[in-house]
Design a protein around this nucleic acid. Sequence first.
DNA 1: AGAGATCATG
Length: 615
Amino acid sequence: MPVSTAVPRLAALLRSAGLRRFPALCRQLHAQLLKSGLRHLPPFPVALLTAYAHCGLLPAAHNLFDETPHRDPFLYSAILAAFSHSDRPSDALPLFCQMLAVDRIPLDGFILATLVKTSSRLASIRLGRQAHAQFLSSPLLSGDDVVKSSLVDMYSRCGAPDDARKVFDTILHKNCVSWTAMVSGYASNGRKVEALELFRQMPEKNVFVWTALISGFIQSGDSFGSVKLFVEMRREGVQIEDSFILSSIIGASSHLASLELGKQLHCLVVGLGYESSMIVGNSLVDMYAKCSDIYSARAVFEGILARDIVSWTTMVVGEAQHGRAEAALTLFDEMVLAGVKPNEVTFVGVIYACSHAGLVQRGRGLFDSMTRDYGMKPLLQHYTCLLDLLSRSGHLSDAEDVIRTMPYEPDEATWAALLSSCKKHGDTQRSNRIADHLLALKPRDPSTYILLSNTYAIAGKWGHVATVRRLMANMEIRKEPGYSWVELGKESCLFRAGEVPHNMRNEILELLERLVMEMKKRGYVPDTSSVMHDVEEHEKEQQLFLHSERLAVAYGILKSVPGAVIRVVKNIRVCSDCHTVMKLISSIIRKEIVVRDATRFHHFEGGKCSCGDFW
DNA sequence: AGAGATCATG
């Protein structure tokens, strides 16, 4: 074939091999180019590099760059773009310097857009502002709307939506990309009013901008608002033509812990034919795990054909949070066998699993393996898990060593966790020492004060108890009011501590009283140590009696169909008395009760809890 | 003649 027709044909093939992510085809075409001597003929240096980059073959792309004798602006912007999209965007910076200093290539709009993208990926507003200054100082460039869009995105991601807006207003011809970047900027920074206002002004709305708006709401903590928007989008008949919006909105049902909503979305996923999409599958696994249905989570996981590190990690963390340590660890081994390399999040999951199952050796081994086998630097979260592992199982001295020698500054919660373990294991001397240290840090969390007060009370240090109480009063520290809700089919009902709904008042109270009587026959003694107020013992018991999770469970028992699992979600952690009560109720009424609290899941069945009483 | 900016999961 003559060169004149071979060149465009090969170029088109390369482009499509890259876009469709066919690394083998890219390599084959690369070989063909070498054989035919066309390798260095434009457009192949750039086309080949771009194709490799699209396939995620960054080292190969980098090699091509090094092998190319003539480095022009096109080649530079291709390699810089490749790095700016990769998981190591900072690798773009030395190349950028080389471009300016060694090859003396001046900045153009393409390079600048890529540099701005790099800044945004690095969350470096400093670098972004430098690029912005360069942009403004060059009259030839400063009209480029694409660069402006990239600046809007950069400022938005760096948490500066007002700066983003200033740039946005100067864009001459606003297109979908620029609008979406700005809407996303407002929404993801919690500026809901502005996000909606801008969104309503948009001349034409596509799925991208809907996704940006909805996921921005989720990111800024308004999952409920995001669901309302999703419903509106469906009503407007917007075609769901990609998986982004689905994985986003499924994430909202995880946050809301709404199994019913999650199931409906799962049906939608199946109906639209996205059940084999990996990312949608991953978000479904997480949703089922967070909505307390670990078995359905597992079923979806088993159905994902191509599992990536997120799929595995989601499942490992899910099993761990449900107290199924063996399942989590087995899964981890399977993952390693399948040739998937664990990352930092995976290690948090498995060490957490060990900690909740008292597997000290195994947990320590995993912590060490992180550095030894995978060359990862343990983060604060990993040290927190390790500390938890050691202190729960009574290795208090080792735990204290870790907290004092780890390369991070321990915070209030970390010290409080250690103190709580020392108290549990009756190490009074260590408890007192840590309590004094913790008090000196001027804690902010009300539960820390309760812990301190209890610690000093056990040691008989009444003067200290009084000091803690005084501090609490002065700071007007209040415990976050507890609330719980229970889902019964399509209906869900919310209960606040101490408030019994009028229409069911008698039934709920009567049931709880009957249950308490039955529990006392089985040796139940109320544990009032978590009640903060200075009131009489019987009044404390009365407060416990009306804790929100008990009201929710009672309502669930009264309303649920036989055989159904009672699922309760609580905003704060379950107190130790309620934990005992839930175990007893599960054996009295012979039903499974699942409680999702602020940190984990408790499966109560037959008088036992999956957390093994450590949480 | 090859290069740039918008939405997603743990």
